[in-house]
Amino acid sequence: MKEEFNIISNLIEENTRVLDVGCGNGDLMKFLQENKTKDIRGLEISKEKVQNCLSKGLTVIEGNAESDLKQFPKSSFDYVILSQTLQAFLNPELVINELLKVGKKVIVTIPNFGYWRVRLQLLFKGTMPVTENLPHEWYNTPNLHMCTIKDFYNFCSSKNIKIFKSIALKKSRISEINKSNLNYKNLDSHLGIFLIES
């Protein structure tokens, strides 16, 4: 978690306007507030989590990214962050498009379904993968649209979304993803972090 926060924080310039979509209990917001910028908002669907954030004095709105991002004007944030949430939406493509409208730049992190540990479970055990990063069983997972680093990379190229930076994370090892090492990074990383722009 800490590594992911650090990477995200390093992608953000100081004193910019940030929106954290699916901000959960506000841990990332708090981290960025202490390290990068005071001007940070959150959007979260769970009442309980929204209340936790507000209790910490964080500016958070209870709402659903699929329907409530529309209310923000175009390019009203310097950065919009979607941390490990994309796979939980009914329509991830729509959400990405909304994020790209609201934010000048967008940071998306995805739990990589192409990670070898994940692949092995399906290959050898023949069951849906359950890992530290993806702890749910198939019948109770909130993750509707799992994807791999390669899937997301290809998605961006096919939709003409510019990738400014793509970073792979394995445990605490950080590396850059590029076209030539894509297959390897897709196999050997548990998390992908993308800085994109429309």
């Binding site: 209340q51 964080l58 709105i61």
Partner: peptide, 18 residues
């Protein structure tokens, strides 16, 4: 009210209490 505030980039938090 929240939507009106968001549309001008105001600093607004919102929650619906059960």
């Amino acid at each position: 009210i929240v939507i009106a505030l968001n549309s001008i980039g105001a600093d607004v938090g919102f929650v619906e209490i059960e």
